[in-house]
Computed example of a mutant assay.
Amino acid sequence: MTIAVDKLSDPAVRRLLGAVNSGNRDAFFAALTDDATMSDDGSQRDLADWVDREIFSSHGHIEVQTEKSNGRALVADFRNDAWGEMRTAWKFTVASDGRVSHFDTGQA
């Protein structure tokens, strides 16, 4: 059973994933700190390049299965036109201003 993005516990994560699922690149970057970083399968990636390739140009969509750590650790089914669907794990760091400053993702 999936958890609707608008029901996620953490408001920063809710905003970020809502932007993913609506295909709204501007809202996605507005939900991040100016110096936000990310990693994929343990390797640091260029955030803008990764997001454009894996989410926005390939119609990425996320369906959350479980959440832990007050909504900052998720297991989700992620799909895009490039890779199809895969089970993924996500961990988010939220800054004091309420925006995501870092996220890790990878195969779950």
Rank of each mutant, 00 (worst) to 15 (best):
D104A: 11
A82Q: 14
M1H: 14
L32R: 00
A31R: 06
A4P: 10
S58M: 11
E85H: 11
G84Y: 07
D40V: 10
V5M: 09
D35G: 06
T33L: 05
S39Q: 02
W90P: 05
A73W: 05
R72Y: 08
R79W: 04
V20F: 07
S96H: 15
D6L: 04
R87P: 12
D26Y: 00
A36K: 01
K7Q: 12
T33N: 05
E54L: 03
I55Q: 04
V94P: 05
D81C: 07
W83K: 13
I62V: 14
V51P: 00
A36V: 02
G106D: 05
A82F: 12
D49T: 01
V75Y: 10
D26W: 01
S22C: 02
A108K: 06
V51N: 00
A19C: 08
T66Y: 10
A4R: 11
I3M: 03
D41P: 00
L32W: 01
V5A: 08
R87E: 13
F29D: 05
A73R: 14
P11L: 10
S101M: 11
K7C: 08
A108Y: 03
D10C: 15
F28Q: 02
Q65W: 06
A73D: 15
S43W: 01
V51T: 02
I55L: 12
F29H: 10
N80C: 05
S39R: 03
E67G: 12
S58C: 07
S43H: 07
R15F: 06
F78M: 09
F92R: 06
N21W: 08
N70K: 15
H59I: 06
V51M: 02
M38W: 02
I62P: 00
G98F: 13
N80H: 05
S69T: 15
S22N: 07
L8E: 04
S22E: 12
L32T: 02
M1E: 15
Q65G: 13
R25D: 05
T37D: 01
A27H: 05
L47Y: 02
N24S: 09
L32S: 02
D10L: 11
F92K: 05
Q107G: 08
Q44G: 10
H102L: 09
L16N: 12
R15I: 04
T66N: 12
R79C: 12
A95D: 15
E85W: 09
H102W: 12
N80Y: 06
H59T: 14
H59W: 11
G106Q: 03
L32N: 01
D77C: 11
W50S: 00
S58T: 14
D46S: 07
S58D: 09
E54P: 00
G42S: 04
A76M: 07
F103S: 06
D104Q: 11
R15W: 04
E67H: 10
F56T: 01
S58E: 11
D97S: 14
F28H: 04
R45V: 13
D46L: 04
E67C: 10
G42R: 02
